[in-house]
């Protein structure tokens, strides 16, 4: 109804508007012309690379192109699955992501809950403003700052360590492979805690105040209300964010790793994303690298749908 009305407004001259597909399309030429550039953009920059995935199943030759390169079946997949280097890369990726899931995922939730309990309005706003800040600073700079703080010669952390007699010698943090994972996850937490909390802060603000009043009348203290009113009320948001977190378990930010990586920690800092870059673009093993990337994307997709399914069955919360 709405549509015929609009067509009538727009094209009174054509006389046959409102009936049939073609006239409807014609009558909204202006509207369609706004959307099509966007679709065209996605076809070129998203769908054409998807077609390029074919090279994962071929022995890609730059001069032959995607179509004419000879088929290789699953040989590239077999190759990386039996490659000890890749196993090492997979271990690093999973280790950092599991750490991030156990430590980094709850941190913004706790932060939001505590922030909500702050009584001073100005202090609360100040904490919020400061906590969002690192999100807007590039990883090059934030990583550089972390490296400065951890530096053996000028780092404040080493000053504390030596002054408090935790260790007699300054610790070379970035040269110690055992510490890399925790430093990386710690840096990510510090950079992301405030930004990650925004969505929970909004969810908490949406909790019905009457629930809190009722709980208070029943004698619940603040911690009890936090535990039995606020947390259950924002559970939906938490579950949705958890689905996203689980599906990105093979992602480690490329930018931050590239900044913090050095020859001493290469063995523990190489992750799938940096590996795909180095093998693909630096060593120009195009097909092999595409196979690794494709496997990663597929696992992420399966995890997304899997986590979504489990969550829908267990908690009734789901993305789609």
């Amino acid at each position: 109804m709405e549509r015929t009305l609009e067509a009538g407004h727009r094209a009174p001259a054509s006389g046959t508007e409102g009936t049939g597909r073609r006239s409807r399309w014609k009558s909204q030429f202006a509207l369609q012309s706004m959307v099509w550039p966007g679709l065209l953009f996605l076809i070129v920059f998203s769908y054409v690379p998807m077609y390029g995935i074919l090279i994962a199943f071929k022995n890609f030759d730059l001069f032959l192109g995607v179509m004419d390169s000879p088929w290789a079946g699953f040989s590239h997949f077999r190759e990386f699955l039996t490659d000890p280097n890749f196993m090492n890369v997979l271990r690093n990726t999973l280790a950092m992501n599991l750490l991030a899931l156990f430590l980094g995922f709850p941190a913004p939730i706790l932060f939001a809950l505590l922030l909500n309990e702050l009584t001073g309005v100005r202090f609360k706003r100040f904490v919020q403003t400061v906590s969002y800040l690192p999100h807007f600073v590039s990883w090059v700079i934030f990583g550089g700052l972390i490296l400065t703080v951890l530096s053996p010669s000028n780092g404040i952390l080493n000053l504390l360590i030596v002054k408090l007699h935790i260790s007699d010698e300054p610790i070379n943090f970035m040269g110690n492979p055992e510490l890399f994972w925790i430093i990386m996850v710690g840096a990510e937490m510090l950079k992301g805690i405030g930004w990650g909390a925004i969505i929970y802060i909004a969810a908490i603000a949406g909790v019905d105040p009457e629930l809190h009043e009722a709980a208070t009348i029943d004698g619940a203290g603040r911690l009890q209300r936090m535990r039995y009113v606020t947390v259950p009320s924002i559970m939906g948001t938490i579950v949705i964010m958890l689905i996203f977190a689980v599906s990105s378990i093979l992602n480690t930010g490329f930018e931050q790793i590239m900044v913090m990586q050095n020859p001493l920690n290469l063995d523990v800092s190489e992750t799938i994303d940096t590996y795909v870059y180095k093998v693909g673009l630096q060593q120009m093993r195009y097909s092999y690298s595409t196979a690794v990337g494709l496997a990663k994307s597929l696992v992420a997709l399966v995890l997304l749908f899997g986590a979504n399914y489990v969550s829908r069955k267990l908690t009734n919360n789901s993305l789609f």
Partner: peptide, 12 residues
């Protein structure tokens, strides 16, 4: 939800 990957993007 689905990304073509680094190398296909580079070739494009």
């Amino acid at each position: 939800f689905f990304y073509g990957g680094l190398v296909p993007t580079y070739l494009l």
